[in-house]
Amino acid sequence: MIIATNVQKKFGRLVALDSISLSCNKGQTIALIGPNGSGKTTFIKCLLGMVIPDSGFITVNQENIHRTWEYRQHIGYMPQISRFPDNMTIEQVIDMVRDIRYKPGQELDEELIEAFDLTRMYGKRMRTLSGGTRQKVSACLAFLFKPDILILDEPTAGLDPVASEILKAKILKEKAKGKLTLITSHVLSDLDDLVSEIIYLQEGQLRFHESVAELQKKTGEAKLNRVMAQIMLQKTAQR
C-alpha cells in the first residue's frame, strides 16, 4: 500500500532522511524504531504530506502523493504530541473534524470514544485537558473514519495503562481487518504481540526492514526489547 522510493529530506545541513526506500503492505503492523532524531517522525510527516521530500517519491495505493490530498482520506493519523485549538471543547473538535472530513454514506467508528468514555468529558475545553486525555481524543480521531492506513506516532506515550491496553486492543482488532498500521514507539515492550514487522531507522538511513518472526529466529529471543538489544550488540560487534 505504501511504497517509498529514494526519499531524501534535508533540514539545512542535517540529513533527516537519506534515500529511504521501503514498502508496506496490507495487513501488516509495522513498528518504526530508531533512536531520537533518526527520522521516524519526518518519515511519517512525509507520508502525510506535511513535509515535502527533496527528492524521491512516495506512493499510497499506487498513487504518487506529491501535491495531492485525496489519498489522505485513507489515512488516520495520531501525532506524537496532540495539539488542538485551545478554545474548543472535545465535542467541538470531534464534530469539526467529522464535519470537514465526512462524506455521505461513510460509516463512522466510534468504538474508541465509548471505550475511553470521552462523551463524559465532551464539554471540556482542550486547554484544560491533560496530555493523556488529548492523546485519547487524538486516537479517537485517527480511527473515526475507518481508514485503511493507520499512522500512530508514539501512541501510548502519556496514556495510563488502562487506556494503553484499550488502544492496543483496538489496534489488534483493526489489524485483523487487514489494515496497515505504522507505529513508532520508544517503549518496545508496548509493541510485543502487536507488530509483525520492524523498520529500523538510524541517522536518517534505513538499517533494516524485517519481519518480527525472522528477527526472533535470528536472535533466539522472544521479547522485542531483547531482540533489539541482541541486534544492537551484533551490530557493534560487527564494527
Binding site: 502525510l48 504530506g49 490530498w69 485525496e70 489522505r72 495539539r83 488542538f84 485549538p85 473538535v93
Partner: peptide
C-alpha cells in the same frame, strides 16, 4: 501562530493545503 495546532490537526486530513 496560535492556530498552528488547528492547522496541524487539519493538514493531516484530506484537505487541500
Amino acid at each position: 501562530y496560535n492556530s498552528a495546532e488547528f492547522i496541524e490537526l487539519l493538514v493531516a486530513q484530506p484537505i487541500r493545503r
